[in-house]
Design a binder for these strands. Sequence first.
DNA 1: GAAGTCATTGACTATTAGTCAACAATATTT
DNA 2: AAATATTGTTGACTAATAGTCAATGACTTC
Lengths: 206, 206
Amino acid sequence: MNKRQASAQKTKNKLVKSALELIKENGFDGINVEDITKKAGVAKGTFYTYFKRKEDIVLEISRAPFSEITRELETMDNMELIERLTHYFHRFMECVETCGINICREWIRDVIDPNHVPENIDGQKWNYDVIMLREILNIAVQNGELKKNTPVEAITYIIISELYGMMTSWCMSDGKFEPLDWTHKFCEIQIASIFEPYIKKWRKSL
Amino acid sequence: MNKRQASAQKTKNKLVKSALELIKENGFDGINVEDITKKAGVAKGTFYTYFKRKEDIVLEISRAPFSEITRELETMDNMELIERLTHYFHRFMECVETCGINICREWIRDVIDPNHVPENIDGQKWNYDVIMLREILNIAVQNGELKKNTPVEAITYIIISELYGMMTSWCMSDGKFEPLDWTHKFCEIQIASIFEPYIKKWRKSL
DNA sequence: GAAGTCATTGACTATTAGTCAACAATATTT
DNA sequence: AAATATTGTTGACTAATAGTCAATGACTTC
């Protein structure tokens, strides 16, 4: 990385950092591009060197942590399926708390909106978590953890809707209830009830 | 209602109807106030006689059908609690399908957003469904359908998150899966697993 | 029928997303 | 080392549109 590239990277980082702070505080609709660039100490035009549209910076900011967790799920392949998903729920809700309500709101708006950019900055698909979860369930069917007749597609959406449901109602309650507490109490029972009819064998005793 | 009031009502209806059609087709972000007024055949300024902000018309449009269903739930008090909730889920998802994806997207954006107006046009609170559901569960505890130790607050949010979770993932899938099919298959098992530890007695045999 | 009310109008202002030609700092070529 | 090319940076600019408001006139009230 030469001097010019390093300077560009630094500028972009400054923009992302400024945007993150401002959005956490005021929400995406409460700020404008000039706020971001002023805080970052650059001219307004510079923003558009790094982001095509105002929305793109918030996509980058809100997608990053959730994509990270989904990538984590992929690596946990030495664990029992249900144990793995329980852990995933837990990490997801941890992320919800860490990101804060304004970032979560943007994340939801992103996933439900048709105007999302088709690919992330690193070529990652926006609905990476759906694809990943489906893949993991398919593998579980193949290796005999789940029965052959498991409705993988439907269960994928159930799991996703459990996650986003908790997140949505957390936003609805304006962050008043505790997401982590939530997952501890209820996600096992939920996951168990979803999978109960399709579990073929336990890979190890629980 | 005199001639002037009737004319005003008619104008407002024209605005709502035009907005509904335009939003169903293009989504809220894809239209502007002038589109709405042009389609309704009135001047731009007229819009602001009936709505304070551009957002307010979409709130009125997207809230109406869902508030309607919640009000329905209130009247079903001759039914078994779980039966009642199952029916509520069913009606909710029916509404999701009827409203179409763009209205549902606005509804979600409304419930997760802090910038919502505090009250609806008819004085109804925005989180009417949360309040109503909590009330119904409290009554069930009082009349002995549910045990005294039922965590009403938590269960209220679980039910809400199931509903919005399904809705959110429906929007995510861009309307590809069938919400009604969904509820038929899964809502009973979900509701049963949530309530199982707290059911005290069945009011009638199922 | 005079006075008052209020729905309607459209030109107007204010805000802000996004553009672009000029500039400046760095990298490459000669 | 100088000339040339590349590319990050700038801020004045345009375009789009949300929201305002004084003037108008149709309707209501007295």
